[in-house]
Amino acid sequence: MTKLIKKAKNVVKSLIGFNRVKNILPQIKGENLNKSKKKLFHISAFNYGNAGDILLPLALQDTWNMENKFFGWENQLIYPTVDSKLVKKINKSKGLIIGGGGLFLKDTNANNMSGWQWPCSVEMLSKIKVPIFFYAVGYNRFRGQEEFEPIFKENIKAFAEKAVYIGLRNNGSIDALKNYLPNYLHKKLKFQPCMTTFLSELYSNEIDFNCDKQNFIAFNAAFDRSHLRFGINIGEILTDISIVLRELSEIIPLKFYSHMNSDETIIPFLQSHGVKYELVRLNNTHPKHILEAYTKPKLVIGMRGHAQMIPFGCKTPIISIVSHNKLQWFLDDIGMPEWGVDVKSSNFKEDLKLKVLKALENTENNIKYIEKKQKELFEISMKNVREGFSALNTK
């Protein structure tokens, strides 16, 4: 555990000038850090090694700042075990916000205090005196993954009883989490979209989200827990993806957007099938660069949750390769389930190519649809923020 914490902190400090553990986040808006004595305490997986996790904490704070800029932020990495010293720091703040990201996962920062990523025991939770909010958190259990340990059910019940609300980033997560809670606590579960899904609403003055799309497709692959994503057919699935990409590369340029190092596991397959592409690494970079990169493509083919949500938030059409339920849950929530192709589909290769070609023919219509849905997701999010501020201890 100590090695994991040390590694995480080193990643966090890897970009010169940005020490997230000490509260300095890279700014997209270019605003000065708020020095207010009124602080919100933020627990998150601050991380430069994964492009999606670079954006998450910043976008969360900017979402809350849209409603009220008179609060500062105290940032805390999610991995260290919660003790009395940390609780004391939390209680000096006006409120505790946990999120965003897929924090309900048993094997990332595995522990026997909570059963999910933040190792906060029920005993330590009972000592927290400020309002608690979960904001844009996901149930990230993979298909076929082992069930949570029994401590998870006890722990999440205690959090649900104490929290003002638990904001989950898709309705699939809400339905899944209900299985661990008694009926009377289901009302604590709220739909709270990931902040990356309405980036153009947050940063309209900083990024040109209405720029003309360039004539290329960006694609992304994911390989964390690949045995759960693909099963025994991994070779066949990756071959099918590579064949489709090669055929697409003959009619439109391709760029491979790598969110983290393990994404590049697909490269030997691409090379063996003669896929022509440009590699673009988005990890360990400034979040503004990530936004600019995702405003450009005509279409994004993504296997990661944030390889669908970030481009969507940047008004860029998407086709998702579904190797985790969360990707389909997002598409269902935005009313476009057909924008996904499941790796388990018997017609996976044919469906993928057909849907990509159809999307390329409907770029403008898809952008208009995205703009409309983004506004809806943003309005839901700001309503939840307003409810949050109304529950804070502002004395």
Rank of each mutant, 00 (worst) to 15 (best):
240 D>A: 12
286 H>S: 04
277 Y>C: 08
210 N>C: 14
322 V>R: 13
333 D>K: 15
295 T>H: 08
335 G>D: 03
318 I>T: 07
313 G>P: 05
264 E>L: 06
228 L>V: 01
335 G>Q: 15
260 M>F: 14
272 S>I: 00
319 I>D: 06
290 I>A: 00
226 S>N: 10
249 S>T: 01
224 D>G: 11
283 N>M: 10
239 T>W: 01
213 K>M: 11
233 N>V: 03
277 Y>R: 04
311 P>Q: 00
326 K>Y: 02
311 P>C: 08
332 D>H: 11
336 M>Y: 14
314 C>A: 13
243 I>S: 09
318 I>D: 04
337 P>M: 09
283 N>Q: 15
276 K>I: 07
212 D>T: 15
227 H>G: 00
332 D>P: 02
249 S>K: 07
321 I>G: 14
289 H>N: 08
326 K>R: 06
211 C>L: 15
272 S>G: 04
293 A>S: 13
225 R>D: 06
214 Q>I: 10
336 M>D: 15
220 N>Q: 08
305 G>Y: 13
282 L>H: 06
223 F>V: 05
335 G>M: 14
250 E>G: 00
296 K>C: 07
242 S>F: 12
321 I>N: 11
259 H>T: 01
260 M>Q: 14
307 A>P: 00
307 A>Q: 00
293 A>L: 09
335 G>Y: 12
238 L>M: 10
237 I>D: 08
306 H>Y: 08
242 S>K: 15
215 N>I: 05
292 E>K: 09
289 H>V: 01
329 W>K: 02
305 G>C: 03
222 A>F: 04
294 Y>Q: 11
221 A>V: 04
237 I>R: 11
215 N>C: 04
257 Y>A: 13
337 P>W: 06
215 N>G: 09
336 M>E: 15
239 T>M: 09
295 T>V: 15
221 A>Y: 11
262 S>D: 15
226 S>L: 02
213 K>I: 14
245 L>K: 06
230 F>V: 03
228 L>Y: 08
267 I>W: 12
282 L>G: 04
299 L>I: 11
309 M>D: 04
252 I>Y: 00
251 I>G: 05
233 N>G: 04
277 Y>E: 09
233 N>D: 09
318 I>F: 06
284 N>S: 08
330 F>K: 01
284 N>K: 14
260 M>I: 10
334 I>T: 09
333 D>L: 13
212 D>C: 08
216 F>N: 12
239 T>G: 07
337 P>T: 05
220 N>L: 09
271 Q>K: 12
221 A>F: 13
231 G>L: 05
313 G>H: 14
269 F>L: 03
331 L>Y: 15
292 E>C: 05
311 P>T: 02
217 I>Y: 07
262 S>C: 06
270 L>K: 13
235 G>T: 04
317 P>K: 09
321 I>L: 15
245 L>S: 10
332 D>G: 01
330 F>C: 00
321 I>F: 12
255 K>Y: 06
235 G>F: 10
261 N>G: 05
320 S>F: 01
295 T>Q: 09
215 N>F: 08
221 A>L: 11
300 V>Q: 06
266 I>Y: 07
299 L>A: 11
273 H>T: 02
288 K>N: 08
329 W>S: 02
332 D>F: 01
228 L>N: 11
334 I>S: 10
317 P>V: 04
249 S>R: 05
220 N>T: 01
242 S>V: 07
223 F>Q: 09
223 F>S: 07
225 R>T: 01
